[in-house]
Design a protein around this nucleic acid. Sequence first.
DNA 1: ATGGTCGGCAACCGA
Length: 256
Amino acid sequence: MKFATFNTNSIRARMPILLHWLKRESPDVLCLQETKVQDQDFPVEPLERCGYRAAFRGQKSYNGVAILSRSPLKNPALDLFEGGDEQARFISGTVDGIPIINVYVPQGFQVESDKFQYKLKWLRSLHDHISNRYEPHAPLLVAGDFNVAMEDRDVYDPDGFRGGVGFHPEEQALMEEFFKWGLVDIFRKHTTDGDRYTFWDYRIPNGFKRNMGWRIDYILGTAPMAEKSRDVWIDTGVRGMEKPSDHTFLVASLDI
DNA sequence: ATGGTCGGCAACCGA
């Protein structure tokens, strides 16, 4: 099974890259974030022509998540919170018997802001959701844009970012809770390399060329998934194309 | 080199 995640920063703006990548890589599952499209405008047809079913939850302008898969998504769920996730940041289901959760974690704006508190609350809720509904020794993949980097080797300027949003000990402690529960950062299982990023801020001039990035997108898996992972890699191949996203593809191959 | 990001969506907000 080939399993991938990609923050599109608008799926409609990214269709050329997305279709190109799907044809080239033929993943079984692709989790998307920041689709930025309402459900009635989701580009279902071109993806179907490419061989993919789509399950999605969007809203106007912001956020939005989708799971593309060759086999249909079973038992789709769209709500992280009991009262419903009004921000279209969560979608889950089962593909070929493997439970999958796809998330777009709130970015958090600034550490002093209410948005940062909402980010922490959202991460706590995700932990509760997972620990209440899943088993660490059973199959589960959790992928998406977590908007948190964990270690110095995961950002280009650790001393500059330390204590700031995306690189703050409170966020990192909540991420650690996922690992304590039993999820494994599958990229890290396969390499200790630093300077391997999935996101480059558009606002940094030539940030990609200068590799001034962050590793904030993840594929997490429970122990049976981590054991079956053959490789995980960051695919920057589409970055040479016109209009790349500020994120790139993170891909895992699993012996499933 | 006398500038310097995107996308959505129509003035700015969010990242």
